[in-house]
Amino acid sequence: MTILSFNNIEKHDGHTIVFPSFQLSIESGEIVGLMTSINVRTVLLEMLRRKIPVPDQAIAIDGKSIQQLGKSYHQRVGILSIDDGLYERLTVKESLLFYHRLFDSKLPIDGILQLTQLEAKRNVRISKLTFSEKRRVHYAQLLLSDPDIYILEEADQNVDLETKRVLMKVVQELQKNNKAVFVLTSNMDSALAVTNTIYRLDEHGLHKLDVMQQEMEPEDEAVEEEPIVQPVRFEKIPTKVNEKIILFDPPEIDYIESSEGSSQLYIKGDMYQSMFTLNELEQRLLPYGFYRCHRSYIVNLQKVREVITWTRNSYSLVLHDQSSIPLSKTKMAELKEMLGLK
């Protein structure tokens, strides 16, 4: 059953596109991560809070446009924002008791205290808690409101390991209860911690990221002995984030840098660890218009906007996103030839 759906919603701000029209639906029992810039996220959240008007049916809950839902909307959708406040003078228990009555919740407070590991702090004033514990109070409050879809904005930013683990447990619990979770973040790690369904939304639109769970089971010895034959040419570049492998389309990559023996992919300002050496990557990426412009750099030529000559012997390439990478002297001549300048 689809809980939340975005139907051809888009946002322009003056002459710039915040995000183009996209389609996304979230089923119950599904966890979806959305990686965005802060800009896009703020706009989306304002829309979800119904502060910015959206076209009819553009955002729908159970197929009903959010404008038509009235107050009952707040019982269906729970939003955890990064700048939510707390009643700092109340104790944890008093604060939860208040939300319990406010939302007329059926859930037991004790169970939620246990789930969020706040039992020991139940009679402590909220102002005396650490930042991570305050975050857990937020989780507890959201759980009490018991909505059908949980929208979490940067839920695990700056929190300690224990809180991260609590969040993962909470999300798993929610999935078991057939609730939908929508994670808004600008950090790949925090999305990966809770889900494998991750999208990226930016001014170019919505893209799904390919995430594979790394195989944990030991492979058969015999298979390993066999020479690996790739039946089709594999055109994606794998990177590693924690225990997961993320695949990128070559055109997405801005440039690759080698540092301390390993190579790092730069994509929209984020860095991803590659599993290949620079030489291997150069071979694989050559057909896609990549160029080894320096001993320790490979650049996507499509993304180069400017070639800057500092002195007769020193050059650099400036990319679309303003990052600049070095270009060695010998390669400059080669590049000029490629551009047909000589």
Binding site: R49, K71, S72, H74, Q75, I79, S81, D83, D84, G85, L86, Y87, E88, Y99, L102, F103, D104, Q141, S145
Partner: peptide, 13 residues
């Protein structure tokens, strides 16, 4: 303290 928004997003009118 940014708590009014939380109240406005609750069923309380």
């Amino acid at each position: 303290k940014n708590t009014l928004r939380g109240l406005m997003l609750s069923p309380a009118s």
